[in-house]
Every structure is written in C-alpha cells, then in structure tokens.
C-alpha cells in the first residue's frame, strides 16, 4: 500500500532508499549512530561508514534528582557492522 506516493510498499523499502545516504540509527543501550549506510539485510544488520556514535550516560544520582542526561560521549569510526537485534530505529535523510 503506497500511502503518499513515495514508492514505499514495505518498511524495508525505507532502508533500501537510504543506501549510500547518511542515516540516523537508534540502538539499544542509549546509543545513537549517524553514518553512511552501505548494506543491510533482513535482520537489519547494517554496514555503515564515517560513523559518529553518541552514547548517553545517565548519572544515576542526578537521575534520581530528576535531571536529564548528564554525560554524552561521542566517538568516530570508519566502518561499522551493526548487529540487527540491537537496532531500534533507522531514520533516513529527509526526502522532502
């Protein structure tokens, strides 16, 4: 069913249309990745390059005090394999 004329019939089409593009990926364990998507499979295993990883580290003491994220760690990696079972969300670059 193509709702908005974007050529998306199934969820994986969204990923297919994002190949070679910079995507945003949310992973389990409060990790986020931004990188170029090179490959994916049905498990949602991903190969990404030129990746920046952002890790949110919540300080438990300040979390008790009702404060937000305390520490954000970032690092860059040239090429990554991401195991599909940790993927929560993939957002392609805006097509508009």
């Amino acid at each position: 069913m193509d709702v908005s004329g974007t050529g998306i019939q199934e969820p994986f089409d969204l990923i297919r249309l994002s190949l070679s593009e910079r995507v945003f990926v949310k992973l389990r364990g409060d990790r986020e990745l931004s990188g170029i998507l090179h490959a994916y499979d049905g498990h949602m295993n991903l190969i990404m390059s030129d990746v920046e990883e952002t890790i949110m580290i919540v300080d438990t003491e300040s979390a008790m005090a009702g404060q937000g994220v305390v520490n954000v760690a970032k690092r860059k990696m040239e090429m990554l394999f991401v195991r599909g079972d940790s993927v929560i969300l993939v957002s392609p670059p805006s097509r508009t």
């Binding site: 969820p11 994986f12 969204l14 969300l89 993939v90 957002s91 670059p93 097509r95």
Partner: peptide, 11 residues
C-alpha cells in the same frame, strides 16, 4: 522529529 522512520518490530 523524523521525516521517515523505520522501527524494528522486536522493540
């Protein structure tokens, strides 16, 4: 906010 988002079903 995301223009498009793919959410893996197991979550």
């Amino acid at each position: 906010k995301y223009g498009d988002a793919f959410i893996r079903g197991n979550n």
